[in-house]
Design a protein around this nucleic acid. Structure first.
Length: 477
DNA sequence: ATGTAC
């Protein structure tokens, strides 16, 4: 650990005020000894930089999958006062509402006699890869509804059931979307991309429940040992990317207009209540809603393939939950014994609301929200439960995944897509992608081990282990 | 992450 970092708990560390000039609050991060060895010093610098922003409350927080990102680190959480604080696109990321959803099936592994055929049919059903285009035509007016209603638009259009909406964070839509703040260019990119997976670390994966850690929570979430399930990881595609690009330009100017001193221009931001800040917030919410509609459409396409191939009921494949891990939201939290509405930025961090949280359906109220943590390609994913500890310590937040340790270009130099796919096949995992290049830079070796990341948040009480999911086959962009 | 550079 670099000089000046203080150990404050078993897996908990503090960056004291003064580590970089202008810090208003300390940084706090959660990391085991093993993961500490993989941490880039740049990520800690970024965590400290966030602590210099106006109106930040308590701490700049880092999760155990912390790594270097655009301005803010990935695996970071920053909560800001609505009166004195700022909003920053760097605190959300380019892929607005990148997130994960999980649905279960009534199948066990032995029921899948032809796994290759199932993977191929899912691959055909879900457009995948850079610039992937929708199979269904989305009218221009429908795009506006996607941005306002999110997953509810998809369900009303026939992609899913109303129960699905009760299993989405925010019910699958933020209320504060402002479509006027979404440029024509962003809209034009969004129209042909509804229901597409995209590329990079996005995936659709067939999994088997391979361990249950918490019987009671697993039963409440509808997750059973041996069950086959399907995980979908994607975001707001070109639309969200364009929203981020457009508003970064505006906020770079606004930063100067409001005399905000920044240690890094990638932290471009504006007061939360300013016109520029509000416009970004409204556009970001619209992009987040688009992402929820997108994941809902992909869920529907995947379910239809299971119905077609196995003849089961559509309703026998319930959604466990859908979480966002790149978003900023206004939430109520308790700070020093008082309730306060805060603007919580989660970038590569997952909401982890505990028992009694306001938007949980009745049957989950006593357990806490399901937290879905994807593994990297070929490694386990996890279901956890949100906790009261997260509410007290991290503004109701936990980790989001495993965290990259090798750049895409480094990975491509070291590995070929064929080598990686063959190694996975030797372990019984089928990989399907539009090209080999999409596989090499997502190899398991280029990510931190997801099991260790999840163990740290479990031990710290930021979310508790419910089930482990092992991959059977994966579709990559 | 991303019509992986306007």
């Amino acid at each position: 650990m670099p000089d000046g970092i203080i150990r404050v708990g078993t897996d908990e560390w503090e960056i004291p005020v003064g580590y970089v000039p202008g810090m208003r609050v300390p940084g706090r991060f959660f990391l085991s000894e093993a993961l500490a060895g993989l941490l880039e010093p740049g990520a800690l610098q970024q965590l400290a930089n966030v602590a210099t922003l106006p109106g930040i409350v308590r701490y700049s927080l880092g999760m155990p999958d912390l790594h270097w990102g655009y301005g803010f680190p990935i695996g970071g959480v920053g909560a800001f006062s609505l009166d004195e604080g700022v909003i920053s696109p760097g605190g959300v990321g380019f892929d607005i509402n990148c997130g994960v959803r999980l649905f279960t099936t009534p199948l066990v592994r032995a029921d899948i006699k032809k796994p290759r055929e199932l993977i191929e049919s899912l691959y055909r059903a879900v457009p995948t890869g850079v610039g992937a285009k929708s199979t269904a035509k989305i009218p221009k007016e429908a795009l506006l509804s996607m941005m306002v209603k999110g997953a509810r638009w998809a369900v009303e259009t026939g992609y899913g059931t109303t129960r699905d909406l009760t299993r989405c964070e925010e019910g699958g839509a933020m209320n504060d979307a402002d479509i006027r703040a979404v440029s024509e260019k962003a809209r034009a990119r969004g129209i042909p991309q509804g229901g597409t997976l995209g590329s990079g670390n996005h995936f659709l994966e067939l999994q088997e429940v391979s361990e249950i850690y918490d019987e009671k929570a697993a039963a409440a979430f509808g997750v059973k040992m041996g069950q086959v399930c399907c995980m979908i990881h994607c975001g707001s595609r070109g639309l969200g990317h364009q929203v981020c690009t457009d508003h970064l330009k505006v906020l770079e100017t606004a930063t100067k207009r409001y005399n905000i001193a920044l240690p890094d221009r990638q932290l471009a931001c504006a007061p939360a209540g300013s016109p520029e800040g509000q416009a970004y917030y409204g556009a970001m919410a619209a992009a987040a809603n688009y992402a929820w509609a997108n994941r809902q459409m992909i869920l529907h396409a995947a379910r239809k393939e299971f119905v077609r191939m196995f003849g089961m009921d559509y309703e026998s494949m319930p959604l466990v939950y859908d979480v966002a891990h790149n978003v900023a939201k206004i939430e109520e939290h308790t700070v020093e014994g008082r309730r306060a509405r805060l603007l919580v930025h989660r970038k590569g961090a997952t909401r982890s609301f505990g028992p009694g949280a306001p938007d949980l359906p009745g049957d989950l109220a006593a357990i806490g929200q399901p937290v879905i943590i994807p593994g990297s390609m070929g490694t386990s994913s996890y279901v956890l439960a949100g906790t009261a500890t997260a509410m007290e310590r991290t503004f109701g937040s936990t980790c989001h995944g495993s965290g990259r340790i090798m750049s895409r270009s480094q990975a491509k130099k070291k590995l070929t897509g064929k080598e990686v796919a063959d190694a996975l096949l030797a372990r019984g995992i089928i990989v399907r992608a539009p090209n080999e290049a999409a596989i090499a830079d997502e190899a398991p070796d280029v990510y931190k081990p997801s099991s260790e990341v999840v163990q740290v948040v479990h031990d710290a009480g930021l979310s508790t282990l419910v089930a482990r999911l092992t991959p059977l086959g994966v579709i990559k962009g």
